[in-house]
Computed example of a mutant assay.
Amino acid sequence: MVNKVLVTVRASFEYGIRQDIRDYLFFFDRNVNVRATEFRGVLIIEVSKDPKHVAQLLINAPIPENILTSIVPIIYEGNYSTINDLVSSVRDHVSGDCRAYIVKCRLRGSSIGNDNCENAVIGLLRVLGFRAMYRGGASDCAVVIEGLGNWFGIYVGPRSFVRV
């Protein structure tokens, strides 16, 4: 299985930063592949290592935050056609180890709006008894859903493994 980390970079920096990321991660994972997507500024990193470990490496990499703007390890991926597909996937990965969640959705090329996605996930988390908030605030965990067309990848877990 190929593990993935989705990163966003400043527009027009895709080519140069792809090589920088690959060179940096090559020391930790010789099977690293960094590929561009059809969406400007969005890269997918494919690795054989744990995506959370790779995300942590990138968060601490000597690449400025204004160039490498977000880092999301993908713990589950699939295809979706409705918001219920996304919410069901999140429900399966929510952990009692967390008290509060920050929620962020970026559904590029989707008919489902980011706000609708965030509202649905926050509603689910609150029904399950968690504190949930939009994008900011004090939380120990995060739910991040990244969408590219009808593909989605989610991260649910400690906030220390993501930069959003």
Rank of each mutant, 00 (worst) to 15 (best):
Y134T: 01
C98L: 11
I71G: 09
N119D: 14
I63W: 00
F130E: 13
S111K: 14
G109M: 12
G78E: 12
E77R: 14
N116G: 07
P62S: 11
Q56N: 13
I59R: 13
V90P: 02
V87T: 12
V94Y: 10
P73K: 11
N116S: 11
R135A: 08
E77T: 09
R135K: 11
L125K: 00
V94A: 14
Y80E: 09
V127M: 10
Y76P: 00
G109K: 13
N84V: 14
Y134V: 04
R135G: 04
R91D: 15
V143S: 07
C105A: 09
G123A: 05
E65A: 13
G129M: 11
D115E: 08
I67N: 14
L58M: 04
G136T: 11
L86Y: 13
L58K: 12
I74C: 08
C117K: 01
I83N: 05
I75D: 07
I112N: 12
A120C: 07
V87D: 11
D85L: 07
F130N: 06
Y101Q: 10
A55N: 06
S111C: 13
G137W: 01
V143W: 09
A55I: 11
D85P: 00
E118C: 01
V54K: 01
G129H: 04
P62K: 14
G123K: 09
A61K: 14
A142Y: 12
G129A: 06
G129L: 09
A120V: 03
I83R: 05
L107F: 04
N116P: 06
P62D: 09
M133N: 10
R135Q: 05
R106E: 07
D92G: 04
Y101S: 10
A61S: 15
I75K: 05
E146Q: 14
V94C: 04
H93C: 04
K104G: 02
T69D: 14
R131P: 02
N60D: 13
I59P: 10
H53T: 08
L58H: 01
I63L: 06
I102W: 00
R135V: 01
R106L: 08
A100L: 10
I112A: 10
C98R: 14
I75Q: 01
L124V: 03
L128W: 03
L68P: 09
D85A: 04
G136L: 15
A142T: 09
L128C: 02
E65V: 08
R135M: 12
E77N: 10
A132C: 08
T82R: 06
D115V: 12
R135W: 01
I75Y: 05
L124N: 07
Y80I: 04
N79C: 12
L107E: 04
G137P: 02
I74E: 03
H53W: 04
P64W: 04
A55L: 02
I71P: 14
F130C: 13
D140V: 03
R99F: 04
